[in-house]
Structures are given as C-alpha cells and as structure tokens.
Design a binder for these strands. Structure first.
Lengths: 151, 151
DNA sequence: GTCCATGCAAACTGTTTGCACGCGC
DNA sequence: GCGCGTGCAAACAGTTTGCATGGAC
C-alpha cells in the first residue's frame, strides 16, 4: 500500500466523504491481507472487529474506495468480484485451471500494448487487465494440459 | 466461423447431443453477427425466428456450445457475459468507459507474454484475455479521460 | 445541527434448476 | 419408444437500494 492514514484522510475529505470506523476497518482488512478478497471475505474479516458491519456497507465502501482509486477490482471470469488494495506495482494474474492457484506477475509488455493502442487508435488507456489461464508447472506435469498455445 | 454444418453435427453426435431446431438457431445467430452478444440479445434474435424459445434454453445451449468449443465467452467486468462464435483469429478488447464502444484488436505481444510466462514459471498457457479500458479517440477529446497511463 | 453513512430487509439482475411434456434419434 | 431437450416458473447468488436511525464533522 502506498497511502498513509493521513493521505487517506485527505483523500476522503477532498471527496467530501467521511472516514468512519467501518471504512477504516475495511481499508485495514484490504491492506493487511493484500490478497484478492471478495466482498464476503472482507465482510467476514471486519465482522471479527465489529460484528455489526453489514455486507451492504462493505459493498458501498468498496465502491467508494474504487472511485477514490484505493482499491482495484478484478472480475475474473464468472466468479464473484475480488478486491485488493491499489498502489502496488501493477500486476496481472495467471489462474491454474487444474488446481486453482493464482500466480501474479508483471510484464512491461502490457504497457507496450497500451502504447501500441494509443498510437494506432488514438485511445487513452486507463486500465488494462490481463488474465491468463492454463496449467501451472506441477499440474502441467501431471498431464492436466492440452497442447494449444496462447489463444 | 470455421465449422461447417456437418462438422457441427458430428461434434454434437460425438458428444451424444442432439442438434435441435433451437440449437441451430442459436448457433446461426452467433455466426451471423459475430459481435459479442449477451444472452438476452441472442434470445431476442432467435425469438424472431421462433418466439417460443426460452431464455433458459439460450443459456443451456450457450453452456453446451462453450463445452464443445464452438463459442467463446467474455466476462468483461461486472457486465453480463458476452458470447461470440469461436474459431476466428484471437483478439482482445478495448472498452470505452465513456461511450461503451468496444474495439477489437490483435497483438502479438500477448502471445509473447504467454511465452515469457512459460519460460519463467513453467506454465502451460491455454487462454489469455486482455481487456483494456479507457477512452476512445472521440471521448478522450471531449475531456472524458484522466492522465494516468496503463495501470 | 447538518448531512452523510449505516443497518436492515427487500428489490434487482443475470443465471441456473426442477419438473412435466415433447421431440430427435 | 427411450431419453435428452424444452418451456415455464421458481430458485439462486451476488450486488444494489429505500428508508429511518445514528454518527462524523
């Protein structure tokens, strides 16, 4: 995470938003485990601190944090949306279709694609999500995969 | 599309599936407009031929076609899933966040990412989805965008 | 004191499923 | 004729929203 508590507070004030107990807890939960949590998982965690927090508040807060640029949302496939605190270096996701493992990686190539697009189409790129699926090293060995390549 | 009607029939038989009127209509609709249709749009189209086809059948058929490898599914963001007939050259999507326009593009860079990953992690890549968002040329001009780059 | 934020429950959306009938093979 | 496929409606999951109360500023 790259935002100090004061920065967060400033961000909130600038947006005319209040930094409530609930919102702090949700931010905390996201920062502590910077895994990819879904709304329910976040709800479970913050409920341990304050059992009265409702799932609706979690959703509303996540929407707000997304608008403030403090969290990123990944909607990988049909699964529920997953949230993680923003500000880390950009990264992309590989999901193993056999064991479900998620590997994060970074690559400058995605940035290149953005630049390529900007030049070719006059587009202004703000987000790029790359989601790669396949079989991880272990699962590929045990015969999980087929022989086609990047599709 | 790359499958002739006979190939399709063979595929169905091999899977022990029947090629019903409804399924043909749905395949047709997908092949004719190889845009990215959502289930409801497909339903609307096939209803023009047979008003009795139910949305449930559309969903069931799409699931089947996905299993047979005849259609591809794109779950871009929170929006509803979109389907298109498979077999065309791989391509990726840019969505304009202002006007909703979808631009398709292809780039060898994604394949490179796959190769990079294979080498680095021993992964076998079978799918790669790249979803770029931002503002298209027109919307960027009219001040829709902010100044951050590929994230 | 003013509003924004919250909790609750109900609404909503996209998708799936149980059931009895109908049709492809 | 056997069994998969269908239409219908109800169920479902994740997410959003209306409303009255409560809390940040």
């Amino acid at each position: 995470m790259c935002e100090s508590p004061e920065q967060v507070r400033t961000l909130f004030r600038a947006a005319g938003k209040r930094l409530t107990h609930q919102r702090e807890l949700i931010l905390d939960a996201l920062e502590k485990s910077n895994k990819h949590l879904d709304a329910e998982a976040i709800h479970d965690r913050v409920k341990q601190e304050d059992p009265d927090i409702s799932l609706a508040t979690v959703y509303r807060t996540l929407t707000l944090l997304k608008e403030l640029g403090l969290v990123e949302v990944h909607s990988l496939g049909t699964e529920r949306s997953r949230y993680e605190s923003a500000g880390d270096t950009p990264h992309y996701h590989f999901t193993c279709m056999a064991c479900g493992k998620v590997i994060e990686f970074d690559t400058p190539l995605v940035t290149q694609v953005g630049q390529e697009l900007s030049e070719r189409e006059g587009i202004r790129v703000t987000e790029a999500h790359l989601h790669v699926r396949g079989y991880c090293a272990e699962c590929a060995k045990s015969g999980g995969g087929r022989e086609n390549d990047v599709a």
